[in-house]
Amino acid sequence: HDTTVHINGLRIEVHGASEEILKWIEEAARRGVEAEEIKRWVEEALK
Rank of each mutant, 00 (worst) to 15 (best):
H1R: 11
H1V: 13
H1A: 13
D2S: 15
D2M: 15
D2P: 15
D2V: 15
D2G: 15
D2Q: 15
D2H: 15
T3M: 13
T3Q: 13
T3I: 14
T4A: 15
T4D: 09
T4Y: 01
T4P: 10
T4K: 07
T4G: 12
V5A: 04
V5W: 00
V5Y: 00
V5C: 12
V5L: 08
H6G: 04
H6I: 15
H6W: 01
H6C: 15
H6N: 15
I7P: 02
I7A: 03
I7L: 04
I7Q: 03
I7K: 01
I7W: 00
N8G: 15
N8I: 03
N8F: 00
N8K: 05
N8S: 05
N8Y: 00
N8E: 15
G9C: 05
G9R: 01
G9K: 01
G9S: 02
L10D: 12
L10A: 10
L10Y: 01
L10F: 01
L10P: 04
L10I: 15
R11H: 15
R11Q: 15
R11I: 15
R11L: 15
R11F: 14
R11K: 15
I12F: 04
I12M: 02
I12C: 05
I12A: 01
I12K: 01
I12G: 01
I12W: 05
E13C: 15
E13F: 03
E13R: 07
E13G: 07
E13P: 09
E13W: 01
V14F: 07
V14G: 03
V14I: 14
H15A: 14
H15P: 10
H15I: 13
G16D: 07
A17N: 04
A17H: 04
A17W: 06
A17F: 07
A17G: 08
A17D: 05
S18L: 06
S18T: 14
S18N: 10
E19V: 13
E19N: 11
E19T: 12
E20M: 09
E20V: 10
E20F: 07
E20Y: 08
E20T: 11
E20A: 12
E20P: 05
E20N: 08
I21F: 08
I21E: 02
I21P: 00
L22T: 02
L22M: 13
L22K: 04
L22E: 02
L22Q: 03
K23E: 12
W24M: 09
W24A: 08
W24T: 03
W24R: 05
W24S: 03
W24C: 09
W24V: 05
I25A: 03
I25F: 03
I25Y: 02
I25W: 01
I25K: 00
E26L: 06
E26D: 11
E26K: 07
E26C: 04
E26Q: 09
E26Y: 08
E27N: 10
E27R: 06
E27W: 02
E27C: 06
E27T: 06
E27L: 06
E27I: 06
A28D: 02
A28W: 07
A28H: 04
A28L: 13
A28E: 04
A28G: 01
A28K: 02
A28T: 02
A29C: 09
A29T: 10
R30S: 13
R30Y: 07
R30I: 13
R30N: 13
R30D: 09
R30E: 12
R31C: 09
R31F: 07
R31M: 13
R31T: 11
G32F: 07
G32P: 01
G32C: 04
G32E: 04
G32H: 04
V33I: 12
V33Q: 05
V33D: 06
E34W: 07
E34C: 07
E34S: 14
E34H: 12
E34Y: 08
E34N: 13
A35P: 13
A35I: 14
A35H: 08
A35Q: 04
A35D: 05
E36I: 12
E36G: 10
E36N: 10
E36Q: 11
E36C: 14
E37M: 11
E37C: 07
E37K: 10
E37Q: 12
E37D: 12
E37R: 07
I38R: 00
I38S: 00
I38A: 01
K39A: 11
K39C: 08
K39W: 08
K39R: 10
K39P: 02
K39Y: 09
R40M: 07
R40W: 06
R40G: 05
R40S: 08
W41P: 00
W41G: 03
W41T: 08
W41L: 10
V42Y: 05
V42I: 10
V42W: 04
V42E: 00
V42T: 03
E43M: 03
E43V: 03
E44R: 08
E44W: 02
E44A: 14
E44Y: 03
A45T: 12
A45K: 08
A45E: 09
A45G: 05
A45M: 14
L46F: 07
L46T: 07
L46H: 03
K47S: 13
K47I: 11
K47H: 11
K47V: 11
K47W: 02
